[in-house]
Amino acid sequence: MKLTDYEEVRNAHSALRVVASGDSDHLPHWLAQLMIAALRDRRHVTDHHYDSAEPLTISYHADEDADFPYLLAEFKHRDAVPTLIEMLDGEHPSRGAIFALVAIGDKRAVAPLLAVLKRSVEKAEIFERAANALARLKAREALPVLLTHLRRRDIIEAVEKLGDVAAVPALEDVVTRPHVLHEGGYYTGLDKAAIWAARVAIVTLKEKDPTPRYCEFLADRSLGEFERRGMVWRLGDRPDPAAIPHLITAIKTDPSGAVVNQAITVLSVYKHQAAVEGLIGCFDAEFEQKADWKRAYSPAMFRQNIAETLRAITGQSFGADKATWQEWWDREGRNSWKQSP
């Protein structure tokens, strides 16, 4: 760790990674301290031709090549937080440090991340990374800044994650008046993805139970397959039994193979009799000509996916054979199988 030769630096950092990647669910204090020391080491690496205007430092190698922030985050090592915060300074705050601070979940990160957000308004990638981090930390202090920059889908999604209903009026402006003048300037160049993200965010923030509206979006064929599939994911994140018939309908009738396939998979988290009965009925669905933007699916593939989802729900394994599933369900499954409350 005292040496600066490139091969020695790389080998030392590699050794630390090997030890940290062992079977233990605990990161030894001495090991964490060595990683932190490497992240703070600003000495230049020697005997290495680095293709950059700036010389390679040991700290940069520990961050970008050895990925020490990610390892410290995996073990939620709070002793690393002050060093990770220091790594947010400058024009290029560390991606790994931002990720680690969010994963550790330490509120000490909020103020420095907010500073990154404010000074990176003209740097879209850094601004969005900081916005997402603050959203995941539920740092509502970021909302005033974010509301003046609702030009991109990622920022709108970050506002949604913050969960503050105070954002609704600005989001409604994005949907109904996309070129309205705000403190941060005109909402110029808003694309359909940003407006769609605002529509969904409004529902999430305004509705006490957004599931019915998510189901309406899923059934709306005027929306693209990506938007409908996004609703399937959301219904999987919050498995409400009321969504089951809507997901079953999507499996049977949606023209997109991507939506159908995702709906089948998402039902695996719905441990309810209605999901089992609905999926058994889906074996007879018309799956011919279903496709997505990449590939055509075969009907057999959909039916095999149905069988896998039924196995995940019930613990039974009968393959893609509707008759066998139906016989088991009628004989004993319906009466003996316990569903989630």
Rank of each mutant, 00 (worst) to 15 (best):
N261L: 12
E7H: 15
G278H: 12
R151H: 13
G96F: 14
L310W: 08
D51E: 12
I313T: 05
P82T: 03
K76F: 08
K76P: 13
L88R: 11
L31Q: 05
Q304L: 09
A135M: 09
H13T: 10
L114G: 08
H44A: 15
L223A: 05
L171W: 05
K138Y: 09
T204A: 02
A38C: 12
E183R: 14
P212K: 04
I58E: 03
P82C: 04
P69L: 07
I126Q: 06
T253F: 11
V116Q: 11
E207R: 10
P93H: 09
A53E: 12
A291F: 10
Y6E: 05
L16H: 10
V175R: 04
T249A: 15
I264D: 03
R311E: 09
E288S: 01
V121G: 07
S21G: 08
A130L: 05
P178D: 04
E207I: 00
S14R: 11
S24Y: 00
A193Q: 11
L267G: 05
R95A: 03
A20F: 12
I36Y: 06
D63Q: 04
V121S: 09
L147G: 05
D284A: 14
V145M: 07
Q304M: 02
A250E: 07
Q304I: 11
E86F: 15
M301G: 15
P82V: 08
A274R: 05
R140D: 14
A15Q: 14
A133T: 01
L181P: 12
G90S: 13
A38W: 12
A124E: 13
E86L: 13
A37G: 15
R40N: 13
D237V: 12
S94N: 07
R129Q: 13
L205V: 00
T148Y: 07
R153A: 01
D23M: 14
R140E: 14
A97L: 09
R119A: 01
G163N: 00
Y186H: 14
V276D: 06
I58K: 12
P112I: 02
R228S: 01
F318T: 00
L101W: 06
Q316M: 06
V81M: 13
D89F: 10
A166D: 12
A109C: 11
L190R: 15
V174N: 02
H44N: 15
D284L: 04
A219R: 13
L143W: 01
L223I: 04
A201K: 08
G163D: 06
A32Q: 09
E332W: 13
A15W: 10
N11L: 15
V145K: 02
T309E: 03
D65A: 06
T314Y: 00
S21D: 14
